[in-house]
Design a protein around this nucleic acid. Structure first.
Lengths: 254, 254
DNA sequence: CGCGCCGTTGAGCCCGTTCAAAAAGTGTGG
DNA sequence: CCACACTTTTTGAACGGGCTCAACGGCGCG
């Protein structure tokens, strides 16, 4: 599980960034990227299971996830934690609205080894002044995170185990495919989550996650094998479980 | 229940607005308020139970709740809904990051009759250009909403009925008191929520909400009577249930 | 080959639900 | 001001979804 960091994609210069379409710098013209890049301090690699930041830490940086999956979580009580959100390449994390003196209200961790682009908060004000589009962009991304959190609230509060898990899998399935538009007819994605992580995200025991996935598999709806997720007929399950795809506008639309 | 709208406070001019410290215009100097006010189209009163907007509607306005309580919600399936967030005077609603062509991802409704300040989205761009502080402010408010949603996720996913309800009551208790700094030693607040609304917020049946509140009352922790909530020793329950007050920075700090 | 993490399965229990019905408030119209 | 209708709160009994505890199998890695 603890893969070597060497397995990760090394980030190129921002100009040639393959995930830029999904990320913070999306609104910038090619000509602006070089200047914007100076606000990035470094690229950072973390081993699987390492925390990116911890609840209560003072915020000094924000991050764009460059490679690998990650998640935000809160420790509730010993042995209990809630995963708030899964992050895919291009997703922003660590921004909580304040440019100084705020503390992280949750922790963040990589699912496996990950690679991050790091932006010191001290440079953000200057960056937003120079590139107002990035201010708009970060506001938009924050609002989108809100909508996603709301969708999760609906799942946790009012859906059965079956539907909670189906919704989560569908959400991740579509989010991954948005990043790979070429694979629009592909119905298998890489899927590095353990059943325990799924359980911590939807508020169920890993044991019950297992039983539920077994059921989903037996009814032919999903297939998880060897870190791959296959959803034969996404539209069908969406209808079956009331999943609304429109809640995930591609990040590069605005 | 359906009180007449006349019971509401009539909004004064923004210059004299009593809730401004908690609301969108908070960062503006007295001298700027008059110009900013022109971006407000009207004040609107709604009867109890009327929707402010509905899931799927095109967004054309954003709102500041001026008087009364409201909530955001999603309909899951007939008879099931999830309340995403309660709104108190000064709270912003209807902003989802887009300035055109987006649709509301959830619905919003008043708990009892309410009064709203309405800002047409078409004027927002101009407003943010003229008063960049408002852009920062709205970003900050959106990020705060996110933190609050995360706290709710933790409740719904990983806490017992007892703790879910205790947390919600504490959250509302502190949020109301922030709006009334003079009442910092008061431990009773106005509390217009029915047990069914509480249930829809924490993902429980109103029947079970009732039994749980009964238990909270018998252990002397909270008292709900005649639309008033009393929490004798907020600090004590906070410790007992792991509630972290720091997640609610007063809205007028930034 | 052995260790550790992950997935799988079984049995029994408990928290919260469902269904049903009565009691207590609350607003409305006469 | 009172009577009526409706909403909200309260209580009981039985069911069930998801949890707990416990054990075993499988796979990857050292």
């Amino acid at each position: 599980m603890h893969k070597t960091k060497g397995a990760l994609t090394q980030p190129a210069k921002c100009v040639a960034c393959p995930i830029r379409k999904m990320a913070l710098f999306q609104p910038l013209a090619q000509s602006e990227i070089k200047s914007a890049q100076t606000y990035k301090s470094e690229n950072r690699m973390l081993a699987a299971g390492e925390d990116i930041y911890r609840q209560g830490d003072t915020c000094t940086e924000i991050y764009t996830l460059y490679d690998g999956w990650a998640f935000l979580y809160m420790d509730i009580s010993p042995g209990k934690r809630q995963i708030l959100r899964f992050l895919l390449p291009g997703d922003l994390l660590g921004f909580h609205g304040d440019l100084e003196g705020c503390r992280h209200p949750h922790s963040a961790q990589g699912v496996s080894c990950i690679s991050l682009c790091v932006f010191p908060i001290s440079r953000l004000l200057k960056m937003f002044r120079k590139h107002p589009k990035l201010g708009i962009r970060i506001t938009w991304m924050t609002a989108q995170d809100n909508t996603l959190a709301h969708e999760h609230l609906a799942s946790l509060g009012r859906r059965s185990a079956h539907d909670k898990i189906a919704h989560l899998l569908l959400e991740l399935f579509y989010r991954v495919r948005i990043c790979h538009p070429e694979s629009d007819r592909q119905n298998t994605i890489d899927f590095p989550l353990t059943q325990e992580l799924i359980g911590d995200a939807v508020g169920l025991t890993s044991i019950h996650v297992n039983r539920t996935i077994k059921e989903l598999r037996r009814s032919g709806l999903v297939q998880i094998k060897a870190r791959k997720l296959t959803i034969a007929d996404p539209e069908a399950i969406s209808k079956l479980t009331g999943f609304n795809r429109r809640i995930f506008p591609p990040r590069h639309i605005i």
